[in-house]
Design a protein around this nucleic acid. Structure first.
Lengths: 180, 180
DNA sequence: CCTGTCACCAAACGATCGTTCGGGAGAACA
DNA sequence: TGTTCTCCCGAACGATCGTTTGGTGACAGG
């Protein structure tokens, strides 16, 4: 079974999500692909580049399948409800682990190549949350609220992963809909 | 200059905060203490035990100097203001890095010895936030709000560390005072 | 002064880290 | 059929990982 670059990224996403960047070795990533670690360098020049490709892949998925739910012709409340539902479903299947958030705390502030990609992801997320809030709060305050809710969502995911408590995330999403 | 166990913990706190658990080597920790890595095993039996002592040290500091601000005879609003002010001052001097949050995402869910200590820290924090909220919201809802605000604070700290944006944290603390 | 005890050094342990390299199997194209 | 390219193996590289061990100088209690 031959692997494409995209296949490797797909397997690597799950390993990085569970063990973090420094906690994941090239041997771990290769094992998840069914190959030897040296063979990974046929697809990527380094571990950093593989991880950066993983960040791009996740961002692309959200940009294609989740953030667009916040826009469109539907009423703002429906759009916000669809957005929160999609986010909840995404992370429910991943036991609350947000790879972007984990990488942000582990290496985000130290390595600028990682930081710019993670910031772009959170900026897009905040903009998506802000969109349904604009009619009621105006552009400026909606942007601030968008960042607030993204922060609250990330913190709720931390509690979900740490203690298995999904109530903060549910309350966050309810508050987002109520604010729309 | 001879070091006590407490001295080592104090130096290790800063190193772990900046580089995370897996990103910090025993040689890094020893260098911060001005000794060789082998000498650390005179004070701690393993890297895990050193890190656990660091978690205990941070928790003890919050329990002694920050969480008590939420209790006492003062009006609830004053207590909440004092609490948020102390939290903001603590993390402002540490560029938004919360070691507990970072460890929670890096190893918290995987290693139960770490998870129980981090959960205890967040539980105490949520209880402190809940105390000034009880008169207005009742015990049950105050507890939920406490967890919500802790989550939001952690997310705001993530954005502060990642993008240098201190507005989400300021807005979180303003919301906490407004909710009291 | 003697005897421990304490904090630390210096060196090494096996294991694993990220990375490199030469080559081989198999499909694609001529 | 011959050639080229893609994907991967197998083995090794030097470096660093967490940890262990034996010993040394300083200091405290008797």
């Amino acid at each position: 079974m031959r692997l494409t670059r995209e296949d490797v990224v797909g397997r690597a996403v799950e390993v990085f999500r569970r063990r973090g960047f420094h906690g994941t070795s090239m041997a771990d990533l290769a094992a998840a692909c069914g190959i030897l670690k040296g063979s990974l360098y046929h697809h990527f020049p380094s571990k950093d580049d593989l991880a950066l490709a993983v960040l791009e892949d996740i961002h692309a998925h959200f940009r294609a399948a989740i953030f667009p739910l916040a826009h469109g012709p539907l009423p703002p409340t429906d759009r916000m409800a669809a957005l929160t539902r999609a986010v909840a479903a995404y992370f429910a299947g991943r036991d609350g682990s947000c790879l972007m958030g984990a990488f942000a705390l582990e290496i985000g502030a130290g390595d600028e190549r990682f930081a710019v990609r993670i910031r772009a992801y959170f900026d897009d997320w905040a903009a998506a949350v802000a969109a349904p809030l604009e009619p009621r709060h105006g552009v400026v305050e909606a942007q601030r609220l968008g960042r607030d809710f993204v922060a609250r969502t990330q913190g709720a995911l931390m509690l979900l992963k740490l203690a298995g408590d999904d109530e903060p995330l549910a309350r966050c999403h309810a508050a987002m809909i109520a604010a729309t």
